[in-house]
Nucleic acid binder design. Structure first.
Lengths: 344, 344
DNA sequence: GGTCTGGATGTGTACGGTCACATCCGCGCC
DNA sequence: GGCGCGGATGTGACCGTACACATCCAGACC
């Protein structure tokens, strides 16, 4: 215990100061201290100052456990997340954390490692054991909603990055629109044979992007082909590319995210194919690295931080009892770089 | 409130069941229930079963706030993090979360957005207000240690990814060694003019990698030149490349992380330079995408998940009072791909 | 058969806050 | 001058749990 030897002067503080200690020092009742802590009006300025001085003097910190016990409010927002190592979820979480902290809430984050029901349920269970007051679901999978119902979570929740199919609880980026924009861009460049490498089927956003893709193709009366179901990783994009390029019966690819697009471009290089000369590629997300891929990737940008902030705003509003909250979707944006070109 | 209308049958539960409710249903005293919850021995199997049944029947969940209040143990581990959107920290955090959860701890994560003292202090303050029992510092910056001392954090803490300069509290990847491996690899390929693009100077790991780089050059009696101080981003690597390649008085680059290496390779393309034909590049971290860069990046792999796990193991050991814990560094590993070649 | 022993279980209290309610006091009003 | 009023402050109870201690009881032992 280096800390002990470094400052042996200070007496061992057996117990942290509590509200009554503060009251004693300030010469008021503990209730008055409590009032100060809770910004209650009707305190004489002089008294207020005395209490504040006492708090500083003792280095008093309110005991959150005690407060939570008596108010039965944990001041905790739960986050059920998947793939937190990815740029999108990670960015949203960071924004959520900041917004929550500013509002006096703390976060409890848990990762689900598989999309199996048991895993989701166990994650939710963990969060509920902490008496969360609200729930944010990031990168939602279809089964999450079942679990939320089954476990009677019973707190306000929002879902990020979903499709809007559950508008009551989702704060959504219009993924369908984003996918349409990407697809339309390729169509406008003259591509008629477009491949889609999708995310895992049980991911709502993967599904949404696929829908957008298919609808846009349909609107243009183009032939649709079965999308490839991937797993979001660059490696998948690579191996899928190795497979698909053996036939090369397409001139453009819309990848479900930037990582898979990266892997696919890698495969193109191995086949000696030029991007965008031979194959055009569009990604999704606009991770910061996408601008530096070879070639810089045309992709669909999502404002992950904005989504995170709005999620918290929405939940806090609901906790406060506000009704009529804005659920309008966040609009994605097509970022055209150098991985797409007019079909030759 | 859709939830309300969806299942209106259930009566409004005014109060969650507590330990006494369980006791009443099970026909035992509340203390017996408490014993069951805490796995105390000396309970008649029959009684045990009755209590468990009652718990299930009522859907009882222990109130963590009450428990924390009486035991004065928050069962919370604080995480002070920076750059959580990056692969390394994000991976470590995920591992930490899993390990902590398995051990019955929850995590409280806070991000510091700037490396200023005030920001660090405010982050620590936030964590302390939650009565954390231990602290993990991720991606540490020099000033963090000052803050930890100033605020008398007073709980066990470990630092991830540091240099070993503070071996008491750091669980370190041998960054110096990793940097030496990268540099030596370039030297062995015949490079004598090697550039280093470092991370921000106030990051301990950036400093460590720079040290390793300089020492290895020194050992080989090669000319050292001032490293460029970057900010970890791909964009920085790109713009640094645009600048440096105008002179091109080097044949190899050791980048402080994979992102900056990516940006640098982008700059090389713009100059019409081949990697590794004209310039060899080594990164650091081995993010999953690195294998699919153009060309696939030679880099130094760190086992971020392992670090995270060991951090928790270390802290839990200390909380339990174990002494003599292993602080041996995690060894990084050089992953040779196609961005490095013998000097021509 | 009384005493000792230890396993199984029950009772009182404390943890640190907040809430509802009580009290005190000075002021304006009839 | 007694009364009502409202601002400022104090008192008691309670939130749900764990710990220390007390109690009960059956079996071993002399």
């Amino acid at each position: 215990m280096t800390t002990e030897t470094e400052r042996p002067i200070e007496p061992e503080r057996v117990r942290a100061p509590n509200i009554r200690d503060v009251a004693r020092v300030a010469g008021v009742s503990y209730q008055t201290v409590s009032r100060v802590l809770n910004d209650s009006p009707n305190i004489r300025p002089e008294t207020l100052q005395r209490v504040r001085d006492a708090i500083d003097e003792l280095g008093y910190r309110p005991n959150q456990a005690a407060r939570a016990l008596v108010t039965s409010r944990s001041r905790t927002i739960g986050v059920l997340a998947a793939q937190t190592v990815h740029y999108g979820p990670a960015t949203s979480i960071q924004a959520i954390e900041t917004a929550a902290r500013e509002a006096g809430y703390r976060l409890s984050i848990t990762n689900i490692t598989s999309s199996e029901y048991a895993s989701i349920k166990s994650g939710l269970d963990y969060l509920m054991s902490q008496a969360i007051e609200a729930l944010v679901v990031i990168a939602p999978q279809v089964r999450v909603f079942e679990a939320i119902n089954d476990l009677q979570v019973g707190v306000p929740f929002v879902t990020l990055e979903a499709t809007g199919m559950n508008t009551d609880h989702s704060l959504w980026v219009d993924q369908v629109m984003g996918a349409r924009m990407a697809t339309r861009h390729l169509i406008e460049l003259g591509h008629t044979e477009i491949m889609h490498i999708s995310g895992p089927q049980d991911w709502i956003e993967a599904e949404a992007r696929m829908q957008g893709f298919l609808r846009e193709l349909g609107d243009a009366d183009l032939r649709t082909r079965a999308p490839i179901l991937g797993d979001w990783t660059a490696s998948f994009g690579y191996y899928a590319g190795l497979e698909l390029l053996r036939y090369r019966d397409f001139t453009a690819v819309f990848a479900g995210n930037d990582q898979m697009a990266l892997g696919f471009m890698h495969a193109c290089r191995e086949f000696g194919l030029s991007v965008p000369g031979d194959i055009s590629i569009v990604g999704f997300d606009d991770v910061p690295e996408a601008a530096h891929f070879a070639p810089p990737l045309t992709t669909v940008r999502q404002n992950f931080a904005e989504i995170g902030r709005r999620a918290i705003a929405l939940l806090l509003g609901e906790l406060r009892g506000d009704t009529e909250l804005s659920h309008e979707p966040v609009q994605p944006e097509l970022v055209i770089r150098q991985s797409t070109a007019r079909v030759s």
